[in-house]
């Protein structure tokens, strides 16, 4: 176990002759964490809708994000189109995909009252099939996209804003704002928020709960298209990388209070910063465990908050 402590002890001293805490390093790590956290919000927002609001445990959500990233990769490498533009164009396709998946889920599990065990296995199967199918088609090589903003950096004094991170951050915030507006200002949006709590009231208002849920789930999968584009802008991808995001997305979703969008943004940014600080000061090999550790601790410490819905 000695090696942990050695690394922990030596790394903070990098770049500082006096071996004190380097403020530049710290501030840069925090900024990088915030930018990363913004991206995590994009990854999680779909899950906050499906798991948080609809109570559908879609553990395959990250798989849809990876799928989105590969679609972006194909179009970008063939035609050189901007990754985010591709994702926006693909939104209706992912929306339709989501509607289809919900229909299968509803008919096979929800209606039969078997959502718990078999529904979970169904999404797990989807996750796995997606991953293996992508491996068959693309192999396990890392794929990446090209765009003018991948590479250059904005510098404000000592702080570094890589555009590769800044653009996804801003896109994520725009998407977040759009969904927040949709959920709070439109009839369907408010119906989505009500669907898990009061189906009877919805019926009385003339809204079909199943249709509302289908729309909401389709929307959640549509966000995966954008999140996929952001993912492949930020880092090269390979099919199995989606797994890492299961923990992150669920950790943020649970930490953010299950389905609360403001909670999602706070939790996403927080996780981004914590991960970034850990990677900077303890080495990147530890960062996957951070989100999952976060999740385990949240689950263990705040069960009342989680169940008291």
């Amino acid at each position: 176990m000695a090696s942990f402590n050695e690394r922990a002890a030596t790394l903070p001293c990098l770049g500082t002759p006096a071996c004190g805490m380097s403020y530049d390093l710290l501030i840069n790590a925090i900024v990088a964490g915030l930018l990363l956290g913004g991206f995590y919000v994009a990854v999680t927002i779909g899950l906050s809708i499906s798991f948080g609001i609809l109570d559908i445990v879609n553990i395959a959500h990250p798989a849809f994000i990876i799928l989105g990233a590969y679609v972006v990769y194909i179009v970008n490498s063939q035609f050189g189109l901007d990754p985010i533009l591709v994702a926006v164009v693909m939104l209706p396709v992912f929306y339709a995909l989501g509607a289809g998946v919900y229909q299968v889920y509803f008919l096979s599990f929800e209606r039969r009252g078997q959502a718990a065990l078999r529904g979970l296995a169904f999404f797990f199967g989807l996750l796995f099939v997606n991953e293996v199918a992508l491996i068959l088609v693309f192999g396990v090589d890392y794929r990446y996209v090209t765009a003018p903003y991948i590479g250059p950096s904005l510098r404000l004094g000592p702080i570094d804003f890589p555009l590769r991170m800044l653009i996804p951050f801003l896109t994520a915030m725009v998407m977040f704002a759009a969904i927040q507006l949709f959920l709070s200002r439109t009839f369907i949006g408010r119906a989505i928020k009500a669907v898990s709590q009061d189906q009877l009231a919805l019926r009385l208002m003339g809204a079909d709960p199943t249709r509302i849920k289908r729309i909401a789930f389709a929307l959640s999968i549509a966000t995966a298209s954008i999140a996929g584009a952001l993912l492949i802008i930020i880092q090269p991808i390979e099919p199995s990388i989606g797994r890492e995001f299961i923990g992150r997305a669920f950790a943020i979703c649970v930490l953010g209070g299950m389905g609360s969008l403001p909670g999602t943004i706070v939790a996403g940014l927080l996780l981004g910063v914590v991960e970034s600080l850990t990677a900077t000061f303890h080495g990147p090999s530890w960062s996957p465990a951070i989100s999952f550790g976060f999740l385990l601790i949240t689950l263990a410490v705040r069960p009342a908050g989680l169940m008291g819905r």
Partner: peptide
């Protein structure tokens, strides 16, 4: 995790997988 509803248990098991793997890798 077992004080929680089933879905959280399932998610927590994935978390356990990654945490243990990270421990072993390090």
């Amino acid at each position: 995790t077992l004080r929680l509803r089933g879905a959280f248990f399932a998610i927590a098991t994935i978390a356990l997988l990654v945490v243990l793997q990270t421990l072993i890798v390090n």
